[in-house]
Design a binder for these strands. Structure first.
Length: 100
DNA sequence: CAATTGACGTAGT
DNA sequence: CACTACGCCAATT
């Protein structure tokens, strides 16, 4: 069970509340720095939504890629409640980027 | 097995 | 700062 998928699962599950990680960051921790796309694929397929806080995974610019556009706004509020700092429609990675 | 797709990232314009 | 083009990876068809 050491698939890349499992590594991504592990990395994503480690994201602490109030912080967010980028696909690239997760991909890097999973051992495939350039597999950001693949990471998104795993979230999209959502193999384990009950244990993977996909809403804490954002793009390198802090944009909440994925989810329905309306859903993004809802998730934004939820992340704000956890302590994630938003800058407009994007996450303020300067303060809320995981591992920083 | 080959081609297409998709929640990305970086660099160039 | 916004948009475009190219490259990368794994899953699905």
């Amino acid at each position: 069970m050491d698939s890349f998928r499992q590594a991504v699962y592990r990395a994503t599950a480690q994201i602490p509340s109030g912080k967010v990680a980028t696909y690239g960051q997760i991909a890097r921790l999973a051992g495939r720095p350039k597999a950001a796309r693949a990471v998104g694929q795993f979230m999209a397929k959502n193999n384990d939504p009950k244990h993977i806080p996909c809403h804490r995974v954002v793009g390198s610019t802090g944009a909440l890629t994925g989810y329905a556009f309306d859903g993004v706004l809802m998730k934004r509020k939820k992340l704000l409640d956890e302590g994630v700092v938003f800058k407009g429609t994007r996450v303020d990675l300067d303060q809320s980027c995981w591992n920083r």
